[in-house]
Design a protein around this nucleic acid. Structure first.
Length: 775
DNA sequence: TTAGGGTTAG
């Protein structure tokens, strides 16, 4: 008797609490509130009031926890729910899938299959989605079997998930289409899955057919999802404008996703103005919209604006993601902005993208570009999952830096030991570049063998790098063999082999190859012309050079830096300084290289006043001189014996322009001191590690001025350096014989024979009917 | 009454 009223009271209390909780939960749902605190309050009340068996409330809360990314509470409640129904299981599986824990979702699905609860179309749809996202095709196929067993093959939810799976893992277009056409009701989502699938597969015809059929067959209009998929396949501006027109006609406001996709698509087609207009019209700009605009600027050579926009974005409190960071870093690489790059690096650490392969790869390229190899390698080492692009960035970084062959090879070998990755074409191009710039023939040969071993020997870009490597290593025969074996030669292959001959003293053959190239149907390009024109200048074949020049003007290459400089240089070397000046005047925007060609020509012709005038003109035009400019100026001054001017320019290059003089610059200075008989001063300025040519200059001056003391010192240095040049031996021998020291003179001549040095034989040539004949 | 499918950049 005592117990009954108490029990009745408890039951009433339980009943009332359950109603109250259900109402609260419904309120939570109506308000679409995802407040975690509210969820936890209701969860606590469920436990306190012993109402945990209210499955509806539990299910609702699990979903709220899931949307708030609180998986631990969702799972706790799932375990606490006494009477789990199909919705409870599906909700928990969905919670895991939504939060990227696909394996856990599938484990729960397996548990469910072993329980009394049967899956329905919703459960199967979630399970398939988990398989698609994690790439488990075999499991997905088994679940397709279950879909058939339970009779859900025509359900649009389970069916759309299956269609999506067949497109995304395995690209089984026929299976996808079979499931799609078996659906009882094909709604907009189902059509969109098909359209997206064919768009990704690059089947534009099928995409267009599907868009038209969704209207005709099922009376459906394309929506935002359709538009974004359509933008994916757009390859040119007209196509983007067509889709833009469709979006406009649909009359819907810009969805942030559609807006960003449009900004990105216009950017890829080079239409920055349209991207800007769309971005400006978007009321709500998410990280995607910002990134698309930054990427648009970077892609279209407007790096400065990309950096400014990145700053605006950060100022507005929008957190950058990996796409934003990699785009802005690419802009820094393009513009050589190291300081800003370092600031972006700190943002990268702050936002947790230090280990991201895309961001870190670009950052390591930036550090490598500034020769900060230590920092580049630190960034590279922190990448959690290095892809081939990350490795290539590091290999290219070392390749660009002089004297880093061993580091480059070490990284390459480390990559070779990596189980899941293999060097690709770009890796080999980068590693071969390293051998080219360091003239390392032995490593180059090994890498050539690697191209064959790894199956890249038919790739034109890789073989072009092999040819270039052999060319830089002066192995002309090897370069020819690689060139002859190449099946699909392109413009670069031809320019490489022509350049190879031109640079290795085989100018005639270079010009013959140019003829072969033209008969093979290739046209002269801005890559081939400089090599051919340089060959003409070495052969002093000005008539042929003139013909190339007329091609240059006809084809509109005269403003190309390399073409323009080679023509200016050719006329100067062939003796016509006036034609050289005319060719210089053809240049619309002369750069340092163009000025160097002109100044070097004027220097060779002894026109020192004009050399200094052109140097000043460069200064007025804010064009920074480089080491080559100073070499030309110093050589002009030394040839006419301008000692004070030489000292002035020698100091100017260091003090004003921060350029460290090299052997050749010292040679000029030593030469001008030597000509003036100021041998002591010349000897004083010689750094300890000076090259042989400078000592030879000093030795020559010593002979002229009969200074035996400095002459012998120079000779000793030259012998220490084991010089292979006949002129140095002859000079030294003459110095001794000039002083009547016949024995020493004879010894030097004898030593020259012992080390196998012979005087270079001279050669002459003449040109008949555009052909050069040498003898 | 709760659960379920499709979209955007290197």
């Amino acid at each position: 008797m005592l117990i009954r009223p108490f029990f009745a009271l408890r039951c009433r209390s339980y009943h009332n609490t359950t109603i109250a909780l259900t109402e609260q939960t419904q309120l939570l749902l109506q308000n679409h509130s995802n407040s975690l605190t509210k969820c936890k309050q209701i969860h606590a009340n469920l436990i306190v009031s012993n109402a945990i068996s209210n499955t509806f409330t539990s299910n609702t809360l699990i979903n709220h926890y899931s949307r708030s990314r609180d998986l631990s509470h969702a799972h706790l409640l799932f375990n606490q729910t006494l009477h789990k129904n199909v919705v409870t299981w599906t909700s928990m599986m969905s919670a895991y899938t939504r939060n990227g824990q696909f394996k856990k979702a599938l484990q729960l699905f397996e548990q469910m299959l072993h329980s009394d609860q049967k899956p329905n179309q919703c459960t199967l749809s979630v399970a398939i989605r988990a398989c698609t996202s994690s790439g488990y095709l075999q499991l997905g196929l088994q679940i397709h079997g279950l879909v058939l067993c339970y009779g859900f093959e025509s359900d649009e939810f389970a069916g759309s998930s299956l269609v999506d799976m067949y497109f995304k893992i395995g690209a089984f277009l026929d299976d996808a289409s079979r499931v799609f056409f078996g659906l009882r009701y094909r709604d907009c989502v189902a059509w969109n899955v098909m359209i997206h699938g064919f768009s990704e597969a690059g089947n534009v015809g099928e995409v267009k057919r599907l868009v038209s059929e969704m209207r005709v067959a099922d009376g459906l209009r394309p929506n935002d999802f359709t538009f974004v998929s359509l933008l994916r396949y757009c390859g040119c501006l007209i196509e983007v404008e067509e889709v833009h027109g469709l979006i406009f006609k649909s009359g819907t406001e810009f969805d942030p996703v559609v807006g960003s996709a449009l900004v990105d698509s216009y950017g890829k087609c080079g239409d920055c103005d349209s991207s800007e207009k769309i971005a400006a019209s978007m009321e709500h700009k998410d990280v995607f919209a910002w990134s698309s605009m930054i990427s648009c600027y970077w892609r279209n050579g407007r790096g400065r604006e990309a950096i400014v926009l990145f700053r605006d974005m950060c100022r507005e409190g929008q957190k950058p993601d990996q796409h934003t960071l990699s785009s802005v870093l690419k802009a820094c690489v393009e513009n050589g902005e190291m300081e800003i790059g370092i600031q972006v690096h700190s943002q990268m650490i702050k936002n947790g993208y230090q280990g991201d392969q895309f961001v870190a790869s670009v950052l390591s390229i930036l550090y490598a570009d500034f020769s900060e190899m230590g920092d580049a390698e630190k960034v590279f080492r922190r990448i959690s999952s290095k892809d081939i692009v990350s490795w290539n960035a590091m290999i290219m970084g070392y390749a660009k830096k002089k004297g880093c062959v061993s580091s480059c090879v070490e990284i390459y070998n480390e990559l070779r030991r990596t189980i899941n990755l293999k060097p690709d074409g770009a890796t080999l191009v980068a590693a071969l570049k390293c051998c080219s710039s360091n003239s390392d023939l032995e490593t180059g040969r090994q890498l050539h063998a690697e191209t064959i071993k790894l199956g890249h020997s038919k790739k034109t870009s890789v073989v072009n790098s092999v040819i270039h490597m052999y060319s830089e290593c002066e192995a002309v025969e090897d370069a020819c063999r690689a060139f002859d074996a190449l099946i699909e030669k392109d413009d670069i292959s031809w320019s490489s082999i022509i350049g190879c001959h031109a640079q290795n003293g085989l100018e005639l053959q270079a010009l013959m190859l140019c003829k072969d190239m033209l008969s093979d149907g290739f046209l002269l390009s801005c890559y081939t012309i400089p090599s051919c024109v340089t060959a003409c200048s070495v052969l002093a074949a000005m008539d042929l050079g003139k013909q190339f020049h007329s091609f240059v003007v006809k084809l509109g290459f005269h403003n190309d830096i390399y073409v323009g400089s080679s023509v200016i240089d050719m006329y100067a070397k062939c003796g016509s300084m006036e034609d050289s000046i005319k060719a210089f005047d053809e240049q619309d925007n002369p750069v340092v290289g163009t000025f160097n060609a002109l100044i070097s020509g004027l220097a060779q012709h002894g026109r020192v006043d004009e050399v200094i005038r052109e140097f000043n003109k460069m200064d007025e035009m804010d064009i920074l001189p480089n080491k080559i400019t100073f070499l030309a100026v110093l050589s002009a001054c030394s040839h006419v014996g301008l000692v004070e001017e030489s000292i002035f320019f020698f100091e100017l290059m260091q003090q004003k322009y921060g350029l460290e003089p090299e052997t050749e610059h010292y040679s000029c200075l030593v030469d001008v001191f030597g000509r003036a008989g100021r041998l002591e001063e010349a000897y004083q300025i010689m750094p300890k590690n000076m090259g042989d040519s400078t000592w030879r200059t000093l030795l020559s001056a010593s002979r002229t001025h009969r200074n035996m003391w400095i002459g012998e010192k120079s000779a000793k240095k030259m012998l220490e350096l084991e010089i292979k040049d006949h002129a140095s031996y002859v000079l030294l021998s003459n110095l001794y014989s000039g002083e009547g020291r016949w024995k020493e003179a004879q010894e030097i001549r004898q030593r020259m024979v012992e080390v196998g040095i012979r005087k270079d034989p001279g050669s002459s040539w003449f040109i008949i009917r555009d052909r050069v004949h040498d003898f």
